[in-house]
Design a protein around this nucleic acid. Sequence first.
DNA 1: CATGAATGAGCTTTCATTCAT
DNA 2: TATGAATGAAAGCTCATTCAT
Lengths: 192, 192, 192, 192
Amino acid sequence: MAIRQKCNKKRIALLNATLNLMNNQGFHDAPMSKIAKMAEVSPATIYIYFENKQDLINKLYLEVKAAFSAHAFKDSHEDLPVKKGFELIWYNIADFKLNHVEEATFLSQCDNTPMIDEESRREGLKHLQPLLNLWERGQKEEIIKPLSPYILYAYTIYPLAFLTLIQQRNFCQLDKEMLHNSFQAAWDSIKV
Amino acid sequence: MAIRQKCNKKRIALLNATLNLMNNQGFHDAPMSKIAKMAEVSPATIYIYFENKQDLINKLYLEVKAAFSAHAFKDSHEDLPVKKGFELIWYNIADFKLNHVEEATFLSQCDNTPMIDEESRREGLKHLQPLLNLWERGQKEEIIKPLSPYILYAYTIYPLAFLTLIQQRNFCQLDKEMLHNSFQAAWDSIKV
Amino acid sequence: MAIRQKCNKKRIALLNATLNLMNNQGFHDAPMSKIAKMAEVSPATIYIYFENKQDLINKLYLEVKAAFSAHAFKDSHEDLPVKKGFELIWYNIADFKLNHVEEATFLSQCDNTPMIDEESRREGLKHLQPLLNLWERGQKEEIIKPLSPYILYAYTIYPLAFLTLIQQRNFCQLDKEMLHNSFQAAWDSIKV
Amino acid sequence: MAIRQKCNKKRIALLNATLNLMNNQGFHDAPMSKIAKMAEVSPATIYIYFENKQDLINKLYLEVKAAFSAHAFKDSHEDLPVKKGFELIWYNIADFKLNHVEEATFLSQCDNTPMIDEESRREGLKHLQPLLNLWERGQKEEIIKPLSPYILYAYTIYPLAFLTLIQQRNFCQLDKEMLHNSFQAAWDSIKV
DNA sequence: CATGAATGAGCTTTCATTCAT
DNA sequence: TATGAATGAAAGCTCATTCAT
């Protein structure tokens, strides 16, 4: 039983390399050979940890999505008043989008191109449930407009992706005040 | 004018084929050979109309972007009151996003992946100027919040991309009322 | 319409190269790259003429099989007396096996390994019909033993494959007399 | 003796797995990893028992060939009259070919492709000596035609490979009568 | 002895692009 | 202008074999 063990270090190095290359060169210029080189393993080693390229990307997507959710709902609990709860989650997400630009950019890429399996996509959607619950509560309390959650998402969370984009492209740097104003805009759009 | 009418047909067929394949299979499954087949020309013919694949995509991006702008500012003029003007443009854009899904999806893909030249991207940005001017006017008249245009865009126009997305993936169908509510949310987020 | 035409020369060069390599190195050492090099074309060119490696081998099998049949039944017609007709065909086949060693060896390889599609194999079987008809006639005339055609084949034609084998491996050289004796053995085994 | 009993189990499992895969998928689809999996050992373990893949196949060939000979000459001894002796051996071989189809098929594959070392091939040939001796005796007694042993083999033993083939491919089932007729054909072809 | 991880070399196939007509 | 054939380079992936335990 004393054999060399499949070590997580390599798995993680591979996921990181993939994330990196996908963001900077795009899917079409992230060949397995480059990924392997960046992760400092042999190309063949990738296939010990992942079934094939699609699987590698799916798994990366799911893990980044999970990290995102963990971040989004940190310190959140169901006893918070609706606005407080929403504010917490919103700032958490903003923090992720602005400080984990690599991960956030990758998720945006995945959500806007057909590079992820439909199945993995569905899997990834589940993570948002707590936010949907919060909104429902807010609607019952008549604090939040009685709109489809798709619209609520579109006007409060989705805009943050754009802020990631412009920050990543160095169009402008988001300071504390802008962030505050940004939250205000989000809230104004959905509050009753 | 009207020289090489026949040839333009092929050019357009090629652009259409590219748009189609990029949306449905993604960049990595839109090889020149498939594009040629779908446009019913020889692969070699592509290189008569475009320098190379990158050029083909850049040109497509710019033409779709131009079509988008034309659509966005239809019937708009500088004498309209700010809210009226904004409403007109917003509905124009919504109409484009919801009824020209192919084009809108392609633009989203371009904006979220590194598949477009930095130069073409910059070129594409220029088109929004009239909207920026309108917002500036609104801010002078103290109708619109004094926020960075990036934020105004993020909360009024960018959300429409999400609506395209969910419609395209058949999560829900957007009716007139939802559209109205959606506009209201956009306006609420930026109006003073 | 004045385009470079898919030329049969390359197709044939590819088939020859494949035949050659398969015989001398075996399936597992006849990579597409070697086949291409031997045929003096680019590896990619193979895929203009054949769908994939399996298709290349199937097509080669069928063409060699067809050449074999053409050779086998040269000058044969239904008016010949049974023994004369059989003698003619037998010598034709012997001639093919001993003088087209490459082709004959390849066919033996195909018949004894699972490298040919079941479909192509069935297709290849059809060619023997005239010989089966001749045997049937011989059986009606009570010149040939009333045995299953499989057995008739096993004892008259199949042995020739062994003679190819020993000649190819230089165990002995078949002269006219041996050939005559060989035919006699074949005939003795099936004549009444 | 009887040392390393346990290990021999693995050796045999490996040889069996190889035989199995080679017959059903062919050389090119019998990778070491599959062989290991089928024998329920690690790929690395193969290299404890065999030098490399070629060695594994050579050894398998020689062992199967040895099993074949043992079977072929069971109950045979030099005091038997020539025809009786030949009949015994012939039926022994037929029995092997028809009831040990896996082994027989593998031997045919080896004899018709360049997958066995020339050396192992020569080694394998030695086993037939008793049959050659019998024929020589038969020729002295003027019971058997004075032909090269290659031809005698081609018309009496080699046809049995074809019968294996058609039985394996389910073209027809060989019953006792067909076997008897088959022997008669063999004998007719070489008897004076 | 036995192993699962690891790998460089090499496999089949596809690609963007060019050639020759 | 327009083409189908042709291609070198590179893609994703597998293989026989070795490593480290």
